[in-house]
């Protein structure tokens, strides 16, 4: 297990590197797991942790840090249940290798509320009956937080009329919400409530 941070300016571009090398047992057998010591920033706290390079952020959160709010659905990036925020942008934690995000701020559904007060989207999901079984809900919430930030930044979507036009959070249409949230599936079919809840917070 190794992690090395070379002296700045001496490595020709490899000066700030995280490096995990194989743990060899010397008998010519298949190489063993490669592990790296990291400090992972999750919901505002830094956690020292040793991870296998193969480990996904989803598994690290759920299996190693007891942050089981983030859900494993398809584990192939297709359902959105594992959505978390990395550097403020929504991503799929099932396709994110933990070793790649040690220098990023990670926010999970457990980090959305503040001082016991639900995030406005959490309150709106309850008010609008935006869930049935609830399994997809943490991913829907993190995705919606990231999506509204994208809209606030003026990002267009595939259904935004005229790419040169302004993207206005206060006029976010249901069609826009549906398109922008298409990376999150809900097998219970709570979509009408989800769209209403997000629209209520946006507008």
């Amino acid at each position: 297990m190794t992690i090395s941070w070379d002296n700045p300016g001496t490595g020709g571009g490899r000066e700030a590197r995280v490096k995990g090398e194989a743990n060899t047992n010397g008998d010519g057998a298949a190489p063993g797991p490669v592990t790296v010591d990291l400090r992972l920033s999750v919901n505002g706290r830094r956690h020292p942790i040793t991870v296998d390079t193969r480990e996904t952020l989803l598994d690290t959160l759920r299996e190693r840090m007891d942050l089981t709010g983030t859900k494993k659905g398809c584990d192939h990036g297709q359902c959105g249940a594992c959505t978390v925020l990395v550097g403020g942008r929504r991503v799929k934690s099932c396709l994110t290798l933990t070793v790649t995000v040690d220098d990023r701020d990670i926010t999970t559904v457990e980090g959305l509320s503040a001082d016991g007060v639900p995030h406005p989207l959490q309150a709106a999901f309850i008010e609008n009956d935006a869930l049935q079984c609830g399994y997809c809900t943490p991913g829907q919430l993190c995705s919606a937080v990231g999506m509204l930030a994208e809209v606030a930044d003026g990002w267009p979507s595939a259904v935004t009329p005229g790419l040169d036009g302004e993207v206005d959070l206060s006029k976010l249409a249901d069609e826009e919400i549906r398109e922008r949230m298409s990376g999150n599936l809900c097998r219970c079919g709570a979509y009408p409530g989800i769209v209403a809840a997000i629209g209520q917070v946006a507008r």
């Binding site: 700030a16 590197r17 490096k19 490669v34 790649t100």
Partner: peptide, 27 residues
């Protein structure tokens, strides 16, 4: 398969790292 991981900050160092690594791929 277990894999080694290296993070680089320039294209030249990426090519060098890939040349030194076993069955390397860019991520």
């Amino acid at each position: 398969r277990p894999f080694a991981y290296e993070r680089v900050s320039t294209a030249r160092s990426a090519v060098a790292a890939a040349g030194e690594g076993t069955d390397a791929m860019y991520l």
